[in-house]
Nucleic acid binder design. Structure first.
Lengths: 246, 246
DNA sequence: ACTAATTGGTGTAAGTGATACACAGTTACG
DNA sequence: CGTAACTGTGTATCACTTACACCAATTAGT
């Protein structure tokens, strides 16, 4: 059973729901609202997306938007689904490189639309965009030979790591930009904070790692190293597990 | 170098910063504000935490809070650090069970304070609470024999997966509660949505998995299965990698 | 002890945002 | 043609953060 609210949201996401028979032709559309709103969010973040802002950009009054969308929340759900775009087409590589490709492309989406990671979800993925990425991730993982349920579990775990790393790294980088601090300055500052506060009795392992210079400024290249390392180890583990299972 | 804003935030987090020499005795304290605000957030979510709400609960006017905290954002940073609480003491098990313990306890914290996962971070972890959990996670991982930098990378990856899974699962569960829907009803509803929209041409792998019944309602027990499976595979991979390195 | 400098708490007000509601104009169907 | 259904507008309400000016309390320095 699907409740009324979900029904309405599904209509907005999939563009189903019949056209009204009478009355003036609508000048706008949910797609148009979402498009403009995505532009604002890309440029200035999700907080800059207000109903007045979107309406103003379209040349209409704030309240006119409520003829297309029951509330701001639904507009944002539609934005999120559309901004996700199309996942990569199936490639020809082995499953590990397919998974890496999925991660890279997902990462690129989050770089283009950082606000995607700040949308509060009210349910599991249901829109065409979300489902397409879900499918593509499962497709890449399916080469590993895992059964369906474990494939889904592996997907959720990996997806979680990608999303949270993208969020953290993106948020911090943007906060630095706003503060007008270079990456090197910020990293040097953080290294100093850690040296000042991470004393060896209270935080022994952290202190050891700090002393090793792990947090000293270093140029990052390629995919984010933290993500790449974890991803490779996870795939190692998945591979060994699948093999041991026949 | 650490900028002024960060300096101020560090003072609030660590409780450094000298007492004012003149003027009336403060009736409140940052700790008191944070305590009350955490209570509100636990009960009603982060959005329910407004300066008026906190001030009202304390029996003071809204503006009085600004004598203790430069802005709401800083209050929330202090809340987040204090709500994290103390990480588990070092245990006696092997490193894998220590890591699992860290994950379980972290998970429990997020269950007790779901709003922690909605705090927008403006920088890397700097408060005593955050650093303690960081240290504890590294300590657990240190038994694997990985070098410091790879330990940190593994930590960030794992931490990301835990946080995002906790966020997604918690958010969805809470949305269901608000809507007055049981888990079984909601899962059945989602299974229906997937069967309706995940057609086999457009989303082949997803459709296959749906057909297998992976999304049909099933009782969950113990730690969240998705998290446990991914965690085990990741640790498998880390272990094999560490062994192959010496 | 006296005075001036500080600091704490209050009251008021400005600015922003979501959205309920009633209304005026528009279109299709009977 | 009349009526029901629909679109966009104007107005108003409510909640939120925070700037600013003020008075009372407290203490450093004399």
């Amino acid at each position: 059973m699907v409740d009324v609210d979900t029904e309405r949201t599904l209509e907005l996401l999939w563009g189903t729901g019949q056209r009204p028979r009478r009355g003036p032709k609508p000048a706008l559309s949910v797609a148009k609202l979402a498009e403009v709103a995505i532009g604002i969010a890309d440029a200035e973040g999700l907080d800059a997306v207000s109903m007045q802002r979107v309406a103003g950009a379209l040349g209409y009054t704030t309240m006119s938007l409520y003829r297309y969308v029951p509330a701001k929340e639904q507009l944002i759900e539609v934005m999120a689904d559309r901004a996700a775009g199309a996942p990569p087409e199936p490639g020809t590589g082995d499953w590990r490189s397919e998974v890496e490709r999925w991660v890279r492309e997902m990462w690129a989406i989050y770089a283009a639309h950082p606000w995607l990671l700040h949308v509060k979800l009210s349910g599991p993925p249901m829109g065409p965009g979300q489902l397409a990425w879900f499918d593509a991730g499962l497709r890449a993982l399916s080469g590993s030979g895992l059964p369906g349920d474990e494939m889904v579990m592996a997907f959720l775990f990996l997806n979680g790591a990608v999303r949270e790393l993208a969020r953290v790294i993106g948020d911090i980088a943007r906060a630095r930009q706003r503060a007008g601090v270079t990456d090197a300055q910020a990293e040097a500052g953080y290294a100093k904070v850690l040296r000042d506060h991470a004393d060896a009795e209270r935080f022994p392992t952290l202190a050891r790692v700090v002393a090793e210079g792990v947090f000293d400024p270093a140029p990052a290249e390629g995919m984010i190293p933290d993500l790449e390392f974890g991803l490779r180890r996870l795939m190692d583990g998945l591979q060994a597990y699948a093999r041991s299972r026949g």
